[in-house]
Design a protein around this nucleic acid. Structure first.
Length: 237
RNA sequence: CAAUGUCACUGAA
């Protein structure tokens, strides 16, 4: 089962994702029993391609095999429904989790943010804080994105301060998300400052800034930034 | 020995 799951993990991560689901059927044929880790991997695969139907099939299988109370499997179920936009279902699963950890909260919040329920996402963030869950880097990235989507400028700035004070200033994903947030707010000077202070820049960092210029009509800056990116050895995708 | 939640872009009536 470890070999099969390792293979499926690779397919779920790098594609073709459908192959991960094929592996599952082959396992069944060869009478290899999946475990919690296998199910987590399968649910991730379904979520990443938005295949709700397959996800529900696997959910039913999980219930049959009595794996639904596993923490990681439970979080994966929340993630599946959140990624597929079935937010009511995601919330129901979340409420029934025996342990709600930072991963469970993040999965739910990211789902709300992604599917246009920014207010609900912010409210859920508040609820999480009152439960004394410690935020981590992934949660911070989601918080920033939520503020960005909601246009919650004041709150976004507060989150930024908190990120700095908690020592996450070198996290590339968080930093890229912050650039995107300032760009969305049309606070392009702040976006540039963020960008210039980065210890490392990847193609996402550059694109976040370029997209900000583009969105607010600074065509000349788009082009010069694009040029500079290539001078610095980053290739566009 | 395998595992769950996050980053940019993807046009218009």
């Amino acid at each position: 089962v470890v070999s099969w799951t390792a293979l499926m993990t690779g397919y779920a991560e790098y594609g073709p994702v459908e192959k991960a689901l094929e592996c599952f059927h082959q396992m069944e044929q060869r009478s290899v029993s999946p475990n919690a880790i296998t199910f987590a991997c399968l649910l991730k695969a379904c979520g990443s391609i938005g295949d709700l139907k397959k996800g529900q099939e696997i959910h039913a299988y999980i219930v049959n095999e009595q794996y639904e109370n596993d923490t990681v499997v439970g979080n994966s179920l929340v993630g599946l429904y959140a990624k597929c936009g079935s937010l009511t279902e995601a919330r129901e699963i979340f409420e029934e989790l025996t342990v709600q950890d930072v991963v469970s909260w993040t999965a739910l919040i990211a789902g709300y943010a992604e599917y246009g329920c920014g207010q609900e996402a912010l409210k859920t963030l508040d609820n999480m804080q009152s439960e004394n869950i410690s935020p981590d880097a992934v949660l911070y990235a989601c918080s920033v994105k939520t503020c960005s989507i909601e246009g919650a400028t004041d709150r976004g700035l507060l989150v930024h301060v908190e990120i700095a004070s908690e020592g996450f200033e070198r996290d590339m994903t968080i930093n890229n998300t912050l650039i995107g947030m300032y760009a969305k707010f049309n606070m392009l000077t702040e976006a540039e400052d963020m960008f210039n202070m980065l210890p490392e820049r990847n193609v996402v960092s550059w694109t976040a800034l370029i997209a900000g210029y583009s969105e607010h009509g600074h065509g000349k800056l788009v082009l010069s930034c694009f040029e500079q990116m290539q001078i610095e050895g980053i290739f566009p995708n």
